[in-house]
Amino acid sequence: MTTTFPCPVDKTFQFTTPIQSAPVGCYQVPVPGEIDRDGLAITKLGARGWGRLHHFRNYYNAGWGEGQGKPVSPKAVEAFYQFLALIEFPANIKPSIFLTDQGSLELCWENESGNDIQLEFSSTGIEYYIESNEQEGTLGLLEIAELPNRLR
């Protein structure tokens, strides 16, 4: 492995001896049942995106940021993984992932023409914006299969 595993970005406490489980030098055991999803996130988002998603899911509780940040929505995370399974990003493109203060996941990348595509996954649906044709809209969580077509 050439990357380190995700660990808290702001360690308030430091152990004097390395007794913490993370960061681990050579392997990490995922949560049971999540290996496929972790593999998907690594493939589609790269190590950095996968690590950021791991942080958002595990280290950002209610009140993060300036005190008003909401924890990431489990339904948004579920939809996000479903989308990752459906989408093929342009070659050499690793999208950027963000957590909004409303608990949504935002995914941004540039298509082959260099135009922005932005998606926001929330507990109720997915908002999308496609710069190339100035198209924007919202889909319900159950309409996720339609999303890759809208992005073409």
Binding site: K11, T12, F13, Q20, V31, H54, R57, N58, Y59
Partner: peptide, 13 residues
């Protein structure tokens, strides 16, 4: 455990 420590360990969240 202090909350900060609990918050930083996904195994115990």
């Amino acid at each position: 455990w202090p909350e900060e420590m609990r918050r930083q360990d996904p195994d115990i969240v």
